[in-house]
């Protein structure tokens, strides 16, 4: 097993986040670019609304970079809905060559790692990668929404309604950040069957990927200013910290953050925190890239975690297999600098 190294430092040159109405209340809402006032977003269904989110985000990214869709070699996108159709259909609208990926909520970092690899390998000059999720569409797909009268336990997570995308090109100083390394996760399963407790289910996957990233790249927690997990939320995040402690990896509280915990900080109705591929995408592409660009932080490690369940598997009482992909990002600099 190896960590992917990208010594040519592929650059993230622009990023854009489109979000729904509830995310406007997020303490990090200032860092998101576009908002929709309504969950339907002037579309007929939630699934169509999710596609619109991704389209809006991608167009925002292209616009910021001053590029057109024709100049992009390929788009890597994923989401949670039936056979990733929102991404597929958005790709149809955008007319960009397209690779669909699925790692549930880890799709964001899967896309970023692949984009980095393809650019570094010289196969591509400009790669788009993005993910989207929509609260209502995801609830409809995976769980019984509270609209059906059920009561959510305090471990439940709230799927983020948003889409985030970035444009990755060869190294340039005029970048938001560079992709430095990536560690692809192994599927881990700790025998959790409760889809309302995904944070706990994903904990080992995240811990395993972090540990492997450090061992394989010869680094330690001290080499990173921030270590950011995707959507572990309260329970999972605390559990990962414990597991890593047992593995002799010690992370300090202000170094080890979680997008799921941050995005809805101070909002009561979300139970344990946010989830969904767009949770990590919105926070990383919206907020943390800015921190890197401004030089507030030098290096961050982003670990997006995904619970690979389907409505069928959990009704058939299968345990929830989980995955986590890690990508390390570094602030803008010249190659070798």
């Amino acid at each position: 097993m190896k960590t992917w190294h990208f010594p040519s430092l592929p650059s993230i040159i622009s990023a854009s986040v489109a979000a729904g109405p509830f995310e406007k209340k997020s303490p990090y809402a200032d860092h998101f670019d576009t908002f929709f006032e309504d969950l339907y977003m002037e579309e007929k269904s939630f699934e169509k609304a999710q596609r619109k989110l991704l389209e809006t985000s991608v167009q925002g990214t292209l616009q910021k970079a001053g590029m057109s869709g024709q100049q992009v070699d390929c788009m890597i996108a994923g989401d949670l809905i039936n056979q990733i159709t929102p991404s597929n259909i958005a790709a149809r609208t955008l007319g960009i060559p397209y690779l669909g990926v699925f790692s549930a909520c880890a799709s964001s970092m899967e896309g970023l790692a692949l984009a980095g690899a393809l650019v570094h390998g010289g196969y591509s000059e400009a790669m788009l990668t993005g993910v989207s999720s929509h609260n209502a569409a995801t609830e409809k797909q995976f769980r019984y929404p509270t609209e059906y009268g059920g009561q959510k336990p305090p471990t439940a997570q709230w799927t983020v309604t948003a889409a985030g995308s970035v444009l990755v090109t060869g190294n340039t100083v005029d970048a938001l950040a560079h992709i430095e390394k990536a560690t692809i996760g192994r599927v881990q399963d700790i025998n959790v069957t409760d889809p309302f407790n995904m944070g706990a289910a994903m904990s080992l996957a995240a811990a395993d990927t972090i540990e492997r990233h450090f061992i394989q790249s010869g680094e330690s927690a001290r080499d990173y200013d921030l270590i950011i997990t995707g959507d572990l939320a309260e329970i999972g995040h605390a559990a990962v910290k414990d597991i890593l402690n047992k593995k002799q990896i010690h992370l300090s509280a202000d170094q080890f953050l979680d997008c799921g915990k941050m995005i809805y900080q101070g909002l009561d109705e979300v139970q344990a925190g946010g989830s969904g591929p767009a949770c990590s995408a919105a926070m990383v592409y919206g907020y943390f890239l800015k921190l890197l660009k401004e030089g507030v932080v030098n290096r961050v490690l982003v670990i997006a975690t995904g619970a690979l369940l389907s409505p069928l598997t959990f009704q058939q009482k299968e345990t929830i297999p989980c995955i986590a992909h890690a990508v390390s990002l570094i602030k803008p600099q010249k190659v070798g600098g």
Binding site: P153, I190, N191, A200, L204, I235
Partner: peptide, 23 residues
């Protein structure tokens, strides 16, 4: 070993449903 360890760690942080309050 790590599966059981992780399960234990996750269980330790699990928030129980507030049954009495809910009742």
């Amino acid at each position: 070993h790590w599966i059981t360890q992780s399960k234990a760690a996750a269980d330790a942080h699990e928030l129980k449903r507030p049954v009495l309050k809910n009742c």
